[in-house]
Design a protein around this nucleic acid. Sequence first.
RNA 1: GGGCGAGUGGCGGAAUUGGUAUACGCGAUGGACUUAAAAUCCAUUGGCCUUUAAAGCCUUGAGGGUUCGAGUCCCUCCUCGCCCACCA
Length: 813
Amino acid sequence: MNRYNPKSFESKWQDEWNKSGIYKAKDNTSKPKKYILEYFPYPSGAAMHVGHVRNYSIGDAIARFSRMQGFEVLHPMGWDAFGLPAENYAIKNKISPAQAISQNTTRFKSQLNQMGFSYDWSREINSTDPKYYRWTQWFFLLLYKKGLAYQQESLQWWCPVDKTVLANEQVEAGLCWRCGNKVEKKSLKQWFFKITDYADRLLEDLDDINWPEAIKSMQRNWIGKSKGALIDFKVDDSDKTIQVFTTRPDTIYGATFLVLAPEHELVSSITSKSQKNSVGKYIKDSQAKSDIERQETNREKTGVFSGSYAINPLTGEKIPIWLADYVLVGYGTGAIMAVPAHDERDFEFAKKFNLEIRQVISNNDEVDGVTLGEGSMISSGEFTGLNSADAREKIVEKISAMGIGSEKVNYKMRDWLISRQRYWGAPIPIIYCPKDGVVPVDEDQLPVLLPEIESIEPSGDGRSPLVNVPSFVKTTCPKCGGPAERETDTMDGFACSSWYFLRFADPDNQTVPFDKSKADYWLPVDEYIGGAEHAVMHLLYARFWTKVMYDDGLINFTEPFTTLRNQGMILAPDGSKMSKSKNNTIEPDSLIESGYGADSIRIMELFIGPWNQASNWSVDGLGGSYRFLQRVWKVVGQYIESSKGNLSQEINFNIKKIEHKTIKKVTKDLENLNFNTAVSALMEYVNELYKINQSTGIYKDTAWDQAIVSLLKLLCPIAPHITEELWHLMGQTESIHLTTWPTFNESIIIDEVFELVVQINGKVRAQLSVATSLGQEELVKLALKDEKIIKYTKDKTIVKTIVVPGKLINFVI
RNA sequence: GGGCGAGUGGCGGAAUUGGUAUACGCGAUGGACUUAAAAUCCAUUGGCCUUUAAAGCCUUGAGGGUUCGAGUCCCUCCUCGCCCACCA
């Protein structure tokens, strides 16, 4: 037999698997189904590195294991290919985005193929294919029909580098999520999806899905639900009122001033003549501050007096109205009633500007003059003496009765801005008619094709380059037939990825986005595997669309991903993140080329540490994985080439026992996704087999037949090529990946003897090999006869004896 | 500041959930093979411990507690990582 040389057979099997289509998922079978999905990749210019490969190695191990356990498995792959990176790559390389995507998907696909992942490529999808984005546009129309897509002119996040608007979620600490540059505000009319209508359901349904707590809490935090009240404060000597949002209406007797955000719409009308200059200056200053600066915490409070007063509706007192940038225009009403005695920020502000601090709740948690939390009411008129939680309800009741306020639930989450002023996206299927206004494109006119054009760079005036394509823009109104113009904005790429998991159930359908019965069979996704970077964008949007589809009767489930797994990142050997810009990426291609082969890489990806923990890549470690497979090759090879020997019954049984123990361990580990310990169990197994055949010189006998079969089957979800090759060298003709998972027999595993640990006062003093059948008393007798134990126990009284059956005895002296 | 997670050999990590701490792998050291190297194979490899063996003691970030027995449970503290962050 030749030496283990993965190059000599890995690509052969990859071709064979593709040709025979063994990974094709069958619709509507009677088998239980499992839908295993890794986030569909973005085929950017940078190729896949070993960090990405880990994601797919995990998914593929689960998929292969599940197939062998009798599940009908859907394990598809596709391309999330609209959006800026492809567009920028195209501009840089002077090719069209379509060409760029085609090049990059070819590269990615060959990378995935040479790793031997078991995808059903017959279901491959590409979000930039008109056959796909036709349905993304169809969903836009669905949302529009349901009143969930609307246009609004307002201040938007604008990235001056990417020259497009961004959704709230896509701005991280004042920086663009893609390019990392500072964003600005720009007033524009844009398309939004009304995700806020689903805020409560998006929040509540988190309780029913099996997701990492970290991701759930990020989504909860992002939705940011809080219960409180809206209260109107009349402006003194004016007909204006200022509405504030507060979560603590119970503290209203301690509200000693109001604060408006500098951008609040009433600022100019309530500023007094004498304060005009300083207010104007303050507004200018705060605009000049970047959003990063404004978001810095522990920044000293700044503010300015407006010159006007409001009336506290319950105390009747005149209280000053201030402006300060610690109040954010986008949250609540952009105005607050300040209660410095019970809010740290208001307290800081009041201290700095010498405003009144009035305590109205008392408890034992006072720190430096601020009392947080609940307590009993003081100095609060008729509410004095109540506890604050009760007072909160009563005060809201009273305010409602007075007609100046009401209970209100508030959310941090904003609607999803989906317009993009860029070329490379799905066109928004809307037509503007001078007569009929905004008119949706008829469904049967979809797709609205993205035209192929020369210059795809943004127009420069804040509009998409499509404005310069008359053949695209000029159209007729579907209603009146008169001349009209198309919307030139394209859709956020996250729209495409909000439903792709459904298209895999029915990728070629030309009449509907997917057939309901197929979706009902395959969905929801059972295992969704990807990085944590999608926590609040993709994963929130996809949940939102799913609920919209459910409401429309298109599907019968409300959550798209039953179980979510966040794999740990693979870092560069020095612990830094791998990135093209740092030039420290390690790509699988070169590792395969240098002779390690795909299987070694796959083993390494899983063996390196727990699947959900970050690990540093190690080339030396890869060598260890390779040596392991080499030993597998050797053990199985010797078996294949030998003729049947004649081992003792005892050794035969011993081999069988190790085999069954390993089946049990590896099965349990794969069920729990403990890939690293599954690999180590297989290593131990191979080492044991190797030792036995070294010591006996016999490589084949009754027990060996099964031992080798089990070894290959247990290993094949992780190392599909070497196992397939050896399987066929053994004379098998069917693929090993179509076989069933081995089972174990508990009665074979049971040991007849075990190592009894004998402790004195909890310290191990002796180990005895004893028969499993012995009773507790016999064990104690045996232990007390041991020389070492006699040494420790003579002249002492044993106070207590603890016997753990099958494990240990502890004598307390 | 808030939330989540994690601290175990030279390194990545394991430990049936309270029962032999350091499995498995890497690295290192010594040896075999070789003209030599690589590869492969064999042996050793937590510390006290500078020859080995036996015996002993110590050891899971630090300190305390519960328990016959703690890496695992409880309390206090330290360090690191990630996410969120003036949300009224």
